[in-house]
C-alpha cells in the first residue's frame, strides 16, 4: 500500500500494462496470476505456522509455544508485524534501486498485511495477555513508554488501512492521500522504537531493525536529489 503515489500508479498503468483492457492480456499478466497469489501465501505463512504451533501444543503436547504461550504469541506476532511493516516500506526503495516498476502493485497488499499482523499483535495483548482488563491496559498505555509508543504506531496505521481503497483515493484526492500516507514513516519509526524500548539491556536485534528502517528511508531521501543532479 501504503504510500502509493498517484504518479507511480500512473506510470505503471501506462508503461507496463498491456494496452487495452482485454481479459486475455490480464490473464497473461504475471502480477495477477503469479506474484500476487505468491505474496498472499508468503504473508499468511507466519500465521499458518503459529496456528500449527497452537494445534501442536493443544493436541499433541508440543512445546513450540514455550512455557509461556501468551508471551510467545505476543512476541511472534510483534516480530512479524514489524517485519511486514519494513517489507512494505521496502517496495519503493526496491523500485528506485532496481527500476522494476511493477513491484509497486504489491505495495498495498503488503501494507495491509503489516496492518493485519499489528492488529493481531495488539489483539493478543488486549485479549489473551490482559484479558480485556481495560483499566490495566490504559495504565500500560499511559505509564509504560514502550507501550505508549507501540500504540502510537498502531494509531498511525489505522487511517492508512481505512483509506487504502480506490474509492478513498478518489474521495480525498491523490495529493492529500499521498500526504496522509506519509504517516507510515512515523509508524515505522515508532514500531522500531517500541521494539528497542521493549528489550532490556543493550540488545542488537532491535538495532538491526532500526538500521534497516533507516536505510529504507535513506534510499527515499537520496532519490529526489539524484534526479535533480542528473536532470
Amino acid at each position: 500500500m501504503i504510500a502509493t503515489t498517484m504518479s507511480d500508479t500512473a506510470t505503471v498503468n501506462s508503461a507496463a500494462r498491456p494496452q487495452g483492457k482485454d481479459r486475455a492480456a490480464k490473464k497473461r499478466d504475471p502480477m495477477v496470476w503469479v506474484i500476487k497469489p505468491a505474496v498472499w501465501v508468503l504473508c499468511l505463512a507466519p500465521l499458518a505456522w503459529l496456528g500449527w504451533l497452537v494445534v501442536e501444543t493443544i493436541y499433541f503436547g508440543g512445546r513450540g509455544l514455550s512455557a509461556n504461550p501468551v508471551e510467545f504469541i505476543n512476541r511472534y506476532l510483534g516480530d512479524w508485524a514489524l517485519r511486514f511493516l519494513l517489507i512494505s516500506l521496502a517496495v519503493t526503495p526496491v523500485r528506485i534501486l532496481t527500476g522494476w516498476k511493477q513491484v509497486v502493485r504489491v505495495r498495498r497488499l503488503l501494507g495491509l498485511f503489516a496492518f493485519f499482523y499489528v492488529v493481531l499483535h495488539v489483539a493478543n495483548y488486549v485479549g489473551l495477555d490482559q484479558f480485556f482488563n481495560w483499566e490495566a491496559i490504559w495504565e500500560d498505555v499511559i505509564k509504560r513508554w514502550y507501550i505508549t509508543v507501540g500504540m502510537a504506531a498502531l494509531l498511525c496505521l489505522i487511517p492508512l488501512a481505512v483509506t487504502s481503497t480506490k474509492g478513498w483515493i478518489k474521495r480525498i484526492g491523490g495529493k492529500n492521500w499521498n500526504r496522509l500516507h506519509k504517516l507510515v514513516y512515523v509508524s515505522g519509526a515508532a514500531a522500531c522504537l517500541h521494539f528497542f524500548m521493549m528489550r532490556k539491556g543493550l540488545q542488537y536485534e532491535p538495532l538491526v531493525y532500526a538500521a534497516i528502517f533507516a536505510g529504507l528511508m535513506l534510499v527515499r531521501a537520496v532519490e529526489p536529489l539524484k534526479r535533480r543532479f542528473s536532470a
Partner: peptide, 10 residues
C-alpha cells in the same frame, strides 16, 4: 516498575 505493573503475574 516502569515496564510492568507488578500488581499481578502470570
Amino acid at each position: 516498575h516502569p515496564r510492568w505493573s507488578q500488581a499481578s503475574e502470570r
